[in-house]
């Protein structure tokens, strides 16, 4: 059996990876909470952000953490345009159509990246990619410690935006009562697009945090998309605290099952949780009964 240090280290590293998962799920759950759509293109949009970070690093030698400052506004704008001018008009407000349009978009994005960048996996080498932080007897991966810190900061920032700004107020109003919000003069398509844009900006932050220790290929996002859905369903569709706790839990589960069953079977734990939650408690831990 493993020594307790190895188990605790693995679980802590899993917890910190879970924080980045949570950041990805945060955008997904926010979009669901306001627009009531399952954004199937979320994984593909993460891949776009990761490629953007990679290009900035490979072409201009920019540090992946610093590149968030450029990629986040770009992803914000991209998300806004996507929702306002493509997803919204093309789906005529029908649930099933939205699902199909976002599925179509994910295929388009994934394969456009495949045509542009080929299927090679790409990494960024920084001098801190493999650095470890020593805390007592424990060795923790430096990029993951940073990931945890930045996730907490981003969540706080998001909370401030949602609770302390007019845009945030409008977003919460539309989430609660769409018709009422539009009656008092809030432009619902604009708020939808803003929400989608914020979700995409979260992805940019996640991309910057992932790239120093992870790789990107056109298919990378697809690997994250089911994990992100699992987190969102586990935490409760539309619930922000649910996404955070769900993310940390999933990180733990992945680390534990990876440790005991090996990497290839490790993912099964996540999907089984997903299926069980969907079948027996589709509202998740913090979701509201629809």
């Amino acid at each position: 059996m493993y020594s307790p240090e190895i188990v605790i280290e693995a679980l802590l590293n899993g917890l910190m990876l879970g924080a980045i998962y949570a950041l990805i799920a945060l955008g997904l759950t926010l979009i669901y909470g306001v627009l009531h759509i399952v954004n199937f293109a979320h994984g593909a949009l993460l891949t776009v952000a990761m490629f953007a970070v990679w290009v900035l690093s490979a072409r201009f030698g920019m540090d992946p953490y610093l590149s968030i400052a450029i990629v986040a506004p770009l992803m914000f704008a991209f998300g806004y345009v996507l929702q306002r001018f493509i997803i919204g008009p093309a789906s005529h407000g029908k649930d099933n159509s939205i699902l199909l349009v976002t599925l179509g978009l994910s295929i388009i994005i994934e394969n456009a990246l495949l045509a542009g960048f080929q299927s090679d996996t790409r990494t960024i080498n920084t001098d801190y990619s493999f650095r470890v932080v020593e805390i007592g007897p424990l060795l923790l991966s430096f990029p993951r410690v940073v990931g945890l810190g930045v996730t907490v900061l981003t969540t706080l920032l998001l909370w401030l935006v949602l609770n302390r700004t007019d845009t945030g107020k409008a977003i919460r109003a539309v989430a609660k009562e769409k018709l009422g919000a539009s009656l008092v003069g809030i432009s619902v398509p604009h708020v939808y697009a803003m929400t989608f844009a914020i979700g995409c900006a979260c992805l940019a932050v996640a991309a910057g945090l992932l790239m120093p220790s992870f790789y990107v290929s056109p298919k990378t996002g697809a690997a994250f998309v089911l994990v992100a859905f699992t987190i969102v369903v586990l935490g409760g569709m539309g619930s922000v605290p649910g996404a955070l706790i769900g993310g940390l839990l999933i990180g733990l589960v992945e680390a534990a099952s990876g440790l005991f069953f090996g990497d290839s079977l490790g993912q099964i734990g996540i999907f089984l949780i997903f299926i069980v939650v969907l079948l027996f408690k589709p509202t998740g831990l913090f979701g509201v009964q629809q």
Partner: peptide
């Protein structure tokens, strides 16, 4: 034979069809 271009076309057709 640029990889992925055929699937890209599928995606565009799907979105156009739904729209």
């Amino acid at each position: 034979g640029i990889p992925g271009l055929d699937l890209l076309v599928f995606g565009v057709i799907l979105v156009l069809c739904v729209a």
